[in-house]
Design a protein around this nucleic acid. Structure first.
Length: 852
RNA sequence: GCGGGCGUGGCGGAAUUGGCAUACGCGACGGACUUAAAAUCCGUUCCUUUCGAGGUUGAGGGUUCGAGUCCCUCCGCCCGCACCA
């Protein structure tokens, strides 16, 4: 018997898979396709445990679906543009292109070591000119369709990155990567018109039934649709004020208007009024972070203007500038109805404004309904509201909006929170925006024959700002239209642009005439299963959904959603360790000695902190390379799937990885010993099946359960069931030829069930079991539904819901027999002590409950 | 503040539809093998107990013959967010 040598085994099978191009696929219209992909990695240099988990999950799906007969596309690529490459260039004097290329080579090699069943011939790299050439074509197509446009706008400026951030990339008023407070800056920017598809993006969520509810909800909130009315108030200075409200029914309860500090009217007033100017400055100083907003008191300043109520000629509402009104939403102006909005009430109490209730709850009367310090936002009947009195909220909404429309003072409007996606970045390492600015022709698209606009290699990274802008010659080009001297666009695209369409590129990665070969994308798209981190729940996934809609509208692609199935995996976590002085320590620096954690070298007592997501800054990382070296890829893969459900966080422990390692060795020993001993060629079906029957049934149950678990992403349960069945087989001690026949069936089944999870060792042992065909070419095992149920059922017997005994009776016995057998049970008899039960509930094959 | 989720042994977790709570693994303990260790194998391992049994799924209540699962109140933790009018 040979010892399990994972190094030899894993290298052997990886070589065989590569040499035979086992996972390379083509369109085959005779077979059902299945497209599974994981979010492609940023080539940072080495893979981390998050990658191992992500790609293991995807590979299990790919291998499983393949064995179920699908034509499986499982590709891989590199999200290769982005800031870290420029930071590396800045810090280490390496060119971003070289740094990226080397990182990709290293990580590709690491991924191959994991034994992933990937079609490597379809690899895409976003910084490859062949890839971004197609991206530039897409950009120009969008521009032609009016879906990419330029406008001057205030942008979030990250002073450390010297770059614009999307709204989504600003977290708590700080850059999402640098953590530096974001400044406001006015720039000419390129935008993609995501708002053109706001309704479709929202409506489409309803059909994505294989997406996590959580992600759908996050996108729904992000799109933020609301139905309201735009009301036009006449101002005392002769101007008018546009206000958006979702509660026009409360219009008669209005006691003030308020505008945002950045509202044009406020800006105007500030030029002549120092107090207002000072107030606006104060508002800008209070950060946009949640904490500061929550703690900030609702404050405002009177403008001196009043707004005329559209229906009440005698009512003039004071107009405030207020810190809680946002310019970005609606019209940047509101009317305040204190009785029915908490923020408005807080404000009204502070500035001693009128509080008029206009919605009466059903269980109150006008005399006993008072608003003190809690606004009422519930349902009810309109009061104090002229022609709206007596209506409910919905009716009042309709009526008031009709009246406002008739007066010419308002109209119904659907508002979205979603804004257009700003894609310009003042950066070098990104896809160049392929346009030329000409003083006489304006913005001119780079002609297709001149694509791609290639990034110049000779750039300097010795200071802040955009290296493309600073390049001496690159931006100077003749105008393609008039041939006069003109200037290239020096902005590059947000890297989310590159990742918004890569999934479609995988379908025809070498196609040169267009971004996608239509026939290929028609066959493969959409992606049936996409797997990645929940951190992309809004940005990447929403942009991809926007892109598919845009491409569909331009008729470049047929499908309507990019990913029909989405799975978001949990994070990989590890305990944290800190010295008394407060320095983070690597797990490898720490040993546990007699329930105390100590520094491995100095012996110093260490504080063990809670488990957190593995991160370099907290040093609680375990390098996958070391694990794969020490235990092999299969062990790492098995551990990734054991114990933790894939959508929850996974706790990395050394003991856990050893448990996986032991299990693989146990399987190895079991099957090696068997295949050495038994003549596998001379087996035949048994004559006497009775003693084998329980194991045989167990085998079929296991196949059914594991299949069901894999279909539902319950990989931890699938592993547990395989282990359970393995225990059954090793506890089976009948020593006959027939038993060996049975064992052969069982071992083969175990290997088949394990093959998507630990493909190398499964292939090796499968071969040793005397199977000619490779496991990856073998169909998933079938189960016999008639064997899933035993002939007898163990029925629990309860007295008043308490378990009191168990009986074994023939399966599907009728209720009378079951009841009779249950009542005969001695525990039941004792409990009854001669009395008659009040009631007996019989659930066939499961439980009998005797009520006394 | 709003929205969503979660809470089960010493630990990770299992438990189709409301029907035998604690599968599987880890850890721990005991034993076998060994000069010894590692590895391996076998066994024990929710709590209490007068050994009959009784109790236990964050806490309390409710619905039900029956609740980890459904409903209400509360506590704790995690995630998301935009004071969205």
């Amino acid at each position: 018997m040979s010892r399990y040598n994972f190094k030899i085994t894993e290298e052997k099978w990886q070589r065989i898979w590569t040499e035979n191009k086992c996972f390379d696929v083509n369109e085959d219209h005779t077979r059902a396709k299945y497209y599974v992909m994981e979010m492609f990695p940023y080539p940072s240099g080495r893979i981390h445990m998050g990658h191992v988990r992500n790609y293991t999950l995807g590979d299990v799906v790919a291998r499983y679906k393949r064995s179920r007969g699908f034509n499986v596309l499982h590709p891989m690529g590199w999200d290769a543009f982005g800031l870290p490459a420029e930071n590396a260039a800045f810090e280490n004097n390496v060119h971003p292109a070289d740094w990226t290329r080397e990182n990709i080579a290293a990580m590709r090699q690491q991924l191959k070591q994991m034994g992933l069943s990937i079609d490597w011939s379809r690899e895409v790299t976003t910084c490859d000119p062949e890839y971004y050439k197609q991206g530039q074509r897409l950009f120009l197509t969008l521009m032609k369709a009016g879906l990419a446009y330029r406008k001057e706008s205030w942008v979030n400026w990250d002073p450390e990155e010297n770059s614009v951030l999307a709204n989504e990339q600003v977290i708590d008023g700080k850059g999402w990567r640098t953590g530096v407070p974001v400044e406001k800056k006015l720039l000419n920017q390129w935008f993609f018109k995501t708002t053109a598809f706001a309704e479709s993006l929202l409506e489409g969520l309803a059909h994505l039934d294989r997406w996590p509810d959580k992600v759908r909800l996050m996108q729904e909130n992000w799109i933020g649709r609301s139905e309201g009315v735009r009301v036009n108030f006449g101002l005392s200075n002769g101007d008018s004020l546009e206000v958006f409200t979702t509660r026009p029914d409360t219009l008669f309860g209005a006691s003030f208007c308020a505008i945002a500090a950045t509202h044009p009217l406020a800006q105007d007033l500030s030029s002549t009024d120092n107090q207002i100017a000072a107030f606006i400055e104060d508002c800008n100083r209070v950060g946009t972070s949640e904490a500061s907003i929550e703690n900030a008191e609702k404050i405002g300043i009177e403008t001196g203007l009043t707004a005329r109520h559209p229906f009440l000629k005698s009512k003039d509402l004071p107009v405030f500038i207020a810190n809680f009104v946002l310019m970005d939403y609606g019209t940047g102006a509101i009317f305040g109805c204190p009785a029915h909005d908490q923020r408005d009430l807080d404000f009204a109490l502070k500035y001693d404004l009128e509080v008029t209730p206009v919605i009466l709850p059903v269980d109150k009367s006008e005399d006993n309904f008072l608003i003190s310090d809690a606004a009422y936002a519930g349902a009810g009947t309109l009061i104090n509201s002229d022609f709206l009195n007596g209506l409910d909220i919905k009716q009042a909404f309709k009526r008031v909006s009709k009246e406002l429309t008739a007066l010419g003072r308002g109209q119904a409007e659907t508002s979205y929170r979603l804004r257009d996606w700003g894609v310009s970045r003042q950066r070098y390492w990104g896809c160049p925006i392929p346009v030329i600015h000409c003083s006489s022709c304006g913005v001119v698209a780079v002609p297709d024959k001149d694509l791609p606009v290639i990034l110049p290699r000779d750039v300097a990274f010795d200071g802040p700002g955009n290296p493309l802008e600073k390049h001496p010659t690159w931006k100077h080009v003749p105008c393609p239209k008039c041939n006069q001297p003109a200037r290239r666009e020096t902005d590059t695209c947000d890297t989310f642009f590159d990742s918004s369409w890569y999934y479609a590129r995988y379908c025809s990665p070498q196609h040169t005439a267009q971004p996608f070969d239509r026939e290929a994308s028609d066959y493969w798209m959409p992606v049936d299963q996409y797997i990645g981190g929940v951190e992309h729940a809004v940005l990447h996934l929403l942009y991809s959904r926007f892109f598919i809609r845009a491409l569909n509208e331009i008729d470049l692609i047929s499908c309507e959603e990019p990913f029909t199935g989405l799975f978001t995996q949990g994070m990989v976590c590890h305990e944290t360790y800190k010295t008394v002085a407060g320095n983070w320590l690597f797990p490898s620096d720490v040993i546990q000695d007699d329930k105390v954690w100590k520094h491995a070298e100095t012996g110093e007592i260490i504080n063990k902190g809670r488990s957190e997501k593995m991160s370099k800054s907290k040093r609680n990382v375990v390098d996958p390379a070391e694990i794969i070296n020490a235990y092999g890829a299969d062990t790492a893969r098995l551990y990734m799937l054991s114990d933790s459900p894939p959508d929850r966080d996974l706790e990395w422990t050394e003991a856990g990885i050893q448990g996986s390692w032991r299990f693989l060795n146990k399987i190895w020993r079991m099957i090696e010993r068997f295949s050495d001993k038994v003549d596998l060629s001379a087996r035949s079906a048994p004559k006497d099946f009775d003693s084998l029957s329980p194991l045989h049934k167990e085998m079929h149950k296991t196949i059914a359960n594991v299949t069901n678990d894999l279909d539902r992403f319950h990989f931890n349960r699938a592993v547990a069931r395989i282990r359970e069945f393995t225990n059954c087989v090793s506890n089976f001690h009948v020593e006959t030829e027939d038993a060996d026949w049975m064992r052969t069936q069982c071992y083969n089944t175990i290997l088949q069930l394990l093959s998507p999870i630990v493909p190398h060792i499964a292939e090796e042992l499968w071969q040793r079991m005397g199977n000619d065909k490779c496991l990856y070419q073998t169909k998933w095992p079938q189960w016999d539904p008639t064997l899933l149920e035993d002939e007898t059922a163990v029925v629990a017997i309860q007295v008043n819901g308490r378990l009191r005994g168990k009986i074994e009776i023939p399966r599907d016995s009728d209720k009378e027999l079951t009841e009779a057998r249950a009542l005969a049970d001695e525990n039941v008899q004792r409990a009854l002590s001669g009395k008659k039960p009040i009631k007996v509930i019989v659930v066939p094959n499961k439980v009998v409950n005797v009520v006394i």
